[in-house]
Design a protein around this nucleic acid. Structure first.
Lengths: 181, 181
DNA sequence: GTCTATATACAGATAGAC
DNA sequence: GTCTATCTGTATATAGAC
């Protein structure tokens, strides 16, 4: 748990970026090593197998999700607004690792899917007291999932379907009105 | 446009199923041919390259989306309820091809992403007259995206986060109340 | 801790028989 | 239309030098 070697984090960063930008297929050990500025052998010193590399990313997700849960509880505009608003932030470290792990999950990686569902469940638990009923909670969670899904599809980035600015403020207001306990 | 050879459709079915069940990486020409009960050479007679195979799946998406748009306009319980309800059907042909193509999109396939965005835009156009304002339309689209995303994650299938039965009916009622024009 | 070199397996694709 | 055989590139992983 002490601070991990810097090279290790750089490799993880490179792997994450490749998964986001080019997908699971392109995120090979070779490409990851090149992007991280190390050799394949160097990479394999830190992560002995590809599975270990994937497990490293999942650990990063869990750590960042812990921090986000804490921030959500203490958010001045309330957990619901915080949750919806931050679901659309595109280059936040949590969002990046979330998208990267969801790529792994869609590639059939079982542990990645399990980790994502666990994080989602923790968010739902934290929001449940603030939602009127089950349908309200479902709605909040699904809007957030939808925002992530659209971010994950990526595209050209130009005026995508994800609302920003005024539109996002209106959406948050609507969700709060419809779901408040 | 006349009916395509049956073997062609079987290959496409196999490719789609592999994408859904095991991800892009597992959906190789070899595995697809095996699952379709033909040899790799036989597959390559119908689809000369892997790109042609992917394009075939995108064509299938477009055709099924056309049919869905028509059904949505004529739905007895209204387009919004139809749209939300059918976003969670797990083994509908449209849902299957939609998830399969989204796997391709997440693997970096540009045409797949473009096709998905185009279909989404057509749905949004059809729903716009029925939504109170932009935020209402955003909410409807994002709930649908969220349902697809959760279906796409798959998991064990046992009591996943996607609402069914009573819970789905409540969710639809809530969405309609919050967004009706 | 990081490297080069290599082993083994499998990807997409071609050639040509049936 | 469908097959087998084969070419070429590249993936993960190991061995062992520095």
């Amino acid at each position: 748990m002490s601070r991990p070697p810097r090279a290790r984090e750089l490799v993880l960063d490179a792997f994450e970026t490749l998964l986001i930008d080019e997908g699971e297929r392109a995120a090979t050990l070779d490409a990851t090593a090149r992007a991280a500025g190390v050799s394949k052998g160097g990479l394999l010193y830190h992560f002995g197998t590809k599975e270990a590399l994937e497990a490293g990313l999942i650990e990063r997700l869990d750590a960042l999700a812990d921090a986000d849960l804490a921030a959500m509880e203490n958010s001045p505009d309330g957990p619901i607004a915080y949750f919806v608003r931050t679901s659309a932030m595109n280059d936040d470290p949590l969002d990046r690792v979330l998208i990267a792990v969801s790529r792994l999950a869609q590639g059939g990686h079982a542990a990645a899917g399990t980790a994502l569902r666990a994080v989602r469940e923790r968010w739902a638990d934290a929001l449940r007291p603030h939602a009127a009923d089950r349908a309200a909670l479902d709605l909040i969670m699904l809007v957030s999932d939808g925002l992530y899904f659209n971010n994950a599809l990526g595209g050209d980035g130009v005026a995508g379907p994800v609302p920003t600015g005024e539109a996002m403020a209106s959406l948050i207001a609507l969700v709060e009105r419809a779901t408040r306990a």
